[in-house]
């Protein structure tokens, strides 16, 4: 059977997908935050990021805010988060990986989260010189 094609989440996804707060993977964890940027370097204010910590079986979803920022509370010793990006203008969601542990395990420098005092920073760039590596899926 043919698989059902993807369509964009559009600008109004939050009424269906963000009715409850789903951004805590570990209540005792540390913060992971970042900004999603479009090809002009502008923050994307109507996007959604989902992360999955397969080693812990915990999942989270964060809508970007008025400054294009997403944020999660994650396990302090998480190694890698499998990540999806959804947005108006994205006809298919994009898959990437956020490496939090050994940077040498990362497929690309853009997939390494930056340790901060209070957790990790991971910006996502859809296009441009510093574009995040996405995976065919």
């Amino acid at each position: 059977m043919r698989t059902t094609p993807s369509q964009t989440v559009g600008p109004f996804y939050s009424i269906g997908l963000c009715r409850r707060s789903d951004d805590v993977l570990d209540p005792d964890g540390v913060e992971l935050h970042g900004t999603l940027f479009d090809g002009r370097g502008d923050p994307v204010r109507d996007a959604m990021v989902e992360v999955w910590d397969p080693a812990a079986g915990s999942w989270g979803r964060s809508s970007t805010d008025g400054e294009g920022r997403f944020r999660f509370r994650i396990r302090p010793d998480a190694e890698v988060l499998e990540t999806f990006v959804f947005a108006r203008g994205l006809l298919r969601h994009q898959r990437t990986r956020i490496h939090l542990g050994d940077a040498r395990a990362a497929e690309d420098p853009t997939l390494v989260a930056v340790p901060m005092d209070d957790g990790f920073l991971f910006d996502i760039r859809m296009q441009g010189e510093q574009a995040t590596l996405f995976f065919a899926h």
């Binding site: 043919r2 698989t3 094609p5 993807s6 369509q7 964009t8 479009d38 090809g39 002009r40 502008d42 994307v44 947005a87 108006r88 203008g89 994205l90 006809l91 298919r92 994009q94 898959r95 497929e107 690309d108 859809m126 296009q127 441009g128 574009a131 995040t132 590596l133 996405f134 995976f135 065919a136 899926h137």
Partner: peptide
């Protein structure tokens, strides 16, 4: 059988569709 992610008729794709080649998972 999928969508063309940078379909020109849908203007918002222009600055949002990934431009960098995709890695093999």
């Amino acid at each position: 059988p999928e969508v063309q992610v940078d379909f020109p008729g849908y203007r918002s794709t222009r600055w949002r569709a990934p431009s960098r080649p995709l890695a093999t998972l």
